[in-house]
Design a protein around this nucleic acid. Structure first.
Length: 695
DNA sequence: CTACCTCGAGCTCA
DNA sequence: CTCGAGGTAG
C-alpha cells in the first residue's frame, strides 16, 4: 500500500514533532511535550510506518525505541583513530605540559611568535564509555566502541536508543543552506562519552532488584554493559546519557578554527555538550578550573575522574600534532586516586610460565574506586620491602589511573604480627624446587623448569591462547584438571588426548570432550610465527616470533642459529638471543618440539619470505603502511601478505615509509603520506604490485 | 584488576 | 540454573 500525500505529510509532521521533543527533552533539558503526548505521537507514527512500509526511514524517531536484535557485534573501522589522552596527576606535571606546549608553539615559524598566554578549553572527564558516531549527510550511520583505537565494535543499534543521540543532525545540507548554523557535512565522526547519571543508576538498580536481578556495581560498568547488549530493547530501557567532546574524520566541507567553535557547531547540530566546558587561559586558568571542578564533583549528577584540557586553537593543535597514541595538544588532569583501608589476609606467590615468582597480597575485600579489590600484586621482593608489608597489616589500597590497584602504605600493624616479618619463600610453592635469587635482577625464578606444574600450567595456557595456537576451550580450569589427573605433562601430550580420557573430568561429557579434542586437532594447522610464539621462549613475544619466522625457514634453522646470527635480527639483542639459545639447548624442549612435529603440527611453507636471492627481495627494503578499509581482504590480511613477502609493515607514516596502501575512507595517514610525498597505492595498484613481484 | 555480556554445555530437579 | 571460557571496557 502506498501512502497518500496526506499520510506522508502526517508522518513527516509526527517525525518533526517527536524529533524536536527529543531534542528539547534530552539536549535542552526543557521538555516540550508531556510524556503522554509523546507516547501517543510515537505510537501513531509506529502504526503508520507499519502500515506503509515504504515510508520507513533510518532517521525516524521510531528507531530510538530499540528492538533490533543483533547476532553479534561486527567490527567497524574508525575513519580516524580514536586516541587516548596523556595523564597528569599534579600541578607540577601540568606545568611541564604547559611549558612543553608553549615552547613548541613558539618554535613553530608558521605561528605567530609572541604568545602572551595559551588558550585552552577545559571540560570534565566523564567516567563512562567512549563511542564514535558517524553521521553521513546528517543522518546517523553507525556507532562503534573505541576498541583498540583503530576499530571497535558496531553498537549502532544500541547507541541509537540513547535519548540524547540524534538520528539526524539539525541544520541544512549544503545547497539548501539558509541559516547561520553552517552546512551539515557530508560526513563527520563525532566522539562522545556514554554514561549513566547517579539518579539513573539508582533507578536502574531499583529496577534490577525489583525484577530479581543483580544490581550493578557502578554506573560506568552498567553503561558499558548496556552498550554490549545484543537486544537493543534492553539498552533502550537503560538510562544512558551522552556528552560529545570531539571530532574524528570529516569531509572538507566542515571547518572550524578552534575547539570552542567545534563544540558550538556540535550544539547547532543538536549534539549535547557538557555545560561545564569553559575556555580558560594559561596554567593558572587550568588550575583554577581544576579546583572548581574538584569542589563541584560531589554535587555533579554523574561520575567524573578528572578534567581534560585541550588547546583551543586548531592551528596550534595542528602544529603540536601527535605522539604515538595521544595528541600533544590535550591532557587529562586526573583527580587524586581513591584510597581505602583494609587488611592483608595473606601474601601468596604466583608462578609464571617462565618461572617468574610474583607475590600477591590477598586482601579483605574493599570497595575502592567503584570496584571490590581483593587481590593486589606486590610485583617483587623489593616492593614488599619498600612497603614493609606483613600478613595481618592494615594497609591503604589505592585504585589509580583507572586500573591496577596498589598498596600505598602500611598504616597499622597488629601487635601479634609485629614479630613475624614476611619471609619470601626459598622454594617454589608448587614444586618445591629452590628459587633463584639474583641480586642484579629483580625477578625471582623457580628453577623447577619442566617439573614445576605451576609453570607447566602457565606454559600450556600460553600455548593454547588465542594469539598462539588458538585452542578453543582450553582454559584455566581445564588445564588444571588435565595436569592434576596426569592426562598431560607438557604441550605435546595435548595431541595424544582421546575423547575417553576426558570424559569423567569435571564438567566433561561427550560433547565438551569431542569439542576440545577437535579444537586441539584443528590447531595443528598454524603458522611458523604462531608456533614459535606458542613455545613460550622467554623474551620471545609475538613480534619477535614473527621476525624469527621471517628470518628462518624451519625450527631446525632457529635451533642451530648462532648468537651472532640471532643478534643480527631486527629487535633481537643479546638478551633475547641468549634466551633463544638456552631454550634450544634444553633436551626436553627439543623433545617436545619433535613430538609436536610428529603429532602433525604444520604450517604453510610460503609463510616465510624468500631469501635474498629470490625476486621477492624487492620487498625487503619496503616500509609499508596500510590505511583505510580494503575490499578484497582485511587490513591485517594485507599486512600479513606484505610481511610474508618481506616488507616491513608499520602503523604510522614517517619519512622512512616507502609506500602507503590506501583503502576506503582513509584517515590522517593518507594525508600525511601525501604531505611527505610518499608513494600512495590504491587497493588495485597494491594487488598489481604484489602480483607483479611474485615471480 | 574487576565487572560485565554472551555462549555452549553440564547439572539438577520436576 | 550454574559454570567455564572468551571477549570487551577502563
Amino acid at each position: 500500500m502506498t501512502a497518500s500525500p496526506e499520510i506522508q505529510n502526517r508522518i513527516q509532521k509526527l517525525r518533526d514533532k517527536l524529533e524536536h521533543a527529543n531534542y528539547r527533552y534530552h539536549v535542552l533539558d526543557d521538555p516540550a511535550l508531556t510524556d503522554i503526548e509523546f507516547d501517543r505521537c510515537l505510537k501513531e507514527l509506529s502504526q503508520l510506518e507499519a502500515d506503509y512500509p515504504g515510508m520507513q526511514s533510518p532517521d525516524s524517531p521510531t528507531n530510538k525505541v530499540g528492538g533490533a536484535v543483533a547476532k553479534e557485534f561486527a567490527s567497524i573501522e574508525h575513519m580516524q583513530a580514536m586516541l587516548s589522552l596523556d595523564n597528569v596527576f599534579s600541578a607540577d606535571d601540568l606545568s611541564s605540559f604547559v611549558d612543553r606546549v608553549r615552547s613548541r608553539i613558539e618554535d613553530d615559524p608558521s605561528l605567530e611568535g609572541k604568545l602572551a598566554e595559551l588558550d585552552f578549553v577545559a571540560e570534565p572527564k566523564l567516567d563512562g564509555v567512549a563511542v564514535n558516531i558517524l553521521y553521513r549527510d546528517g543522518i546517523f550511520e553507525c556507532a562503534a566502541t573505541r576498541g583498540d583505537g583503530s576499530s571497535g565494535e558496531d553498537i549502532s543499534q544500541n547507541v541509537k536508543t540513547i535519548g540524547a543521540v540524534p538520528l539526524k543532525l539539525k541544520g541544512k545540507l549544503k545547497g539548501k543552506l539558509k541559516d547561520k548554523s553552517g552546512p551539515i557535512p557530508e560526513f563527520i565522526e563525532v566522539r562522545g562519552e556514554v554514561f549513566i547519571s547517579h539518579a539513573g543508576f539508582a533507578m536502574l538498580n531499583a529496577m534490577q532488584i525489583s525484577q530479581g536481578e543483580k544490581p550493578f556495581v557502578n554506573p560506568r560498568n552498567s553503561a558499558a554493559g548496556s552498550l554490549r547488549q545484543l537486544d537493543s530493547s534492553i539498552t533502550a530501557a537503560r538510562p544512558l546519557d551522552i556528552y560529545f567532546y570531539g571530532v574524528g574524520a570529516h569531509s572538507d566541507d566542515f571547518n572550524f578554527e578552534s575547539h570552542e567553535e567545534l563544540l558550538n557547531r556540535f550544539q547547532d547540530f543538536g549534539l549535547r555538550v557538557s555545560p561545564l566546558v569553559k575556555r580558560v587561559t594559561g596554567l593558572s586558568g587550568l588550575l583554577k578550573y581544576y579546583e572548581i571542578l574538584m569542589k563541584q564533583r560531589p554535587n555533579l549528577e554523574y561520575d567524573i575522574d578528572g578534567v581534560v584540557y585541550k588547546i583551543n586553537s586548531l592551528s596550534q593543535q595542528r602544529s603540536l600534532g601527535y605522539v604515538a597514541r595521544a595528541p600533544r595538544w590535550a591532557i587529562a588532569h586526573k583527580f587524586p586516586a581513591q584510597e581505602e583501608r583494609t587488611q592483608v589476609l595473606d601474601i601468596d606467590v604466583q608462578v609464571g610460565r617462565t618461572g617468574a615468582i610474583t607475590p600477591v597480597a590477598r586482601l579483605e575485600p574493599v570497595f575502592v574506586g567503584g570496584v571490590t579489590v581483593s587481590n593486589v600484586t606486590l610485583h617483587n621482593r623489593d616492593e614488599i620491602e619498600r612497603l614493609g608489608v606483613r600478613v595481618g597489616d592494615q594497609v591503604i589500597v589505592r585504585r589509580a589511573g583507572d586500573v591496577i590497584p596498589q598498596i600505598v602504605k602500611v598504616v597499622v600493624r597488629e601487635p601479634e604480627t609485629e614479630s613475624k616479618s614476611y619471609e619470601f619463600p626459598k622454594s617454589c610453592p608448587d614444586c618445591d624446587s629452590p628459587l633463584h635469587f639474583d641480586d642484579e635482577l629483580v625477578v625471582v625464578r623457580c628453577t623447577g623448569g619442566l617439573v614445576c606444574s605451576a609453570q607447566q600450567k602457565e606454559r600450556i595456557k600460553h600455548f593454547a591462547s588465542r594469539r598462539a595456537m588458538d585452542i578453543e576451550g582450553l582454559g584455566d580450569k581445564v588445564v588444571e584438571q588435565l595436569l592434576a589427573a596426569n592426562k598431560v605433562t607438557d604441550v605435546a601430550d595435548l595431541f595424544d588426548l582421546k575423547v575417553e580420557q576426558l570424559e569423567g573430568l569435571e564438567r566433561f561429557a561427550e560433547k565438551s570432550a569431542t569439542n576440545l579434542i577437535n579444537s586441539i586437532a584443528d590447531s595443528r594447522e598454524t603458522s611458523f610465527a604462531r608456533f614459535l610464539y606458542a613455545l613460550g621462549i622467554m623474551h620471545v613475544g609475538e613480534v619477535t616470533a614473527r621476525q624469527l619466522a621471517v628470518e628462518f625457514s624451519s625450527i631446525t634453522d632457529v635451533q642451530i642459529a648462532s648468537l651472532e646470527r640471532l643478534t643480527a635480527i631486527d629487535d633481537v639483542g643479546p638478551v633475547v638471543a641468549q634466551s633463544i639459545c638456552e631454550f634450544f639447548a634444553v633436551a626436553a624442549n627439543i623433545d617436545v618440539i619433535t613430538r609436536l612435529e610428529k603429532a602433525g603440527i604444520h604450517w604453510p611453507a610460503v609463510e616465510r619470505s624468500a631469501d635474498n636471492s629470490s625476486p621477492n627481495s624487492d620487498f625487503m627494503d619496503e616500509v609499508v603502511v596500510v590505511t583505510g578499509a580494503l575490499s578484497s581482504m582485511t587490513r591485517s590480511e594485507a599486512q600479513h601478505r606484505l610481511r610474508e613477502l618481506g616488507a616491513k609493515v608499520t602503523g604510522s607514516v614517517s619519512s622512512n615509509t616507502t609506500r602507503v596502501i590506501v583503502g576506503d575512507a582513509p584517515g590522517s595517514k593518507a594525508r600525511k603520506a601525501e604531505a611527505l610525498g610518499i608513494q600512495i597505492l590504491s587497493e588495485t595498484e597494491f594487488l598489481e604490485w604484489i602480483d607483479s613481484k611474485k615471480g
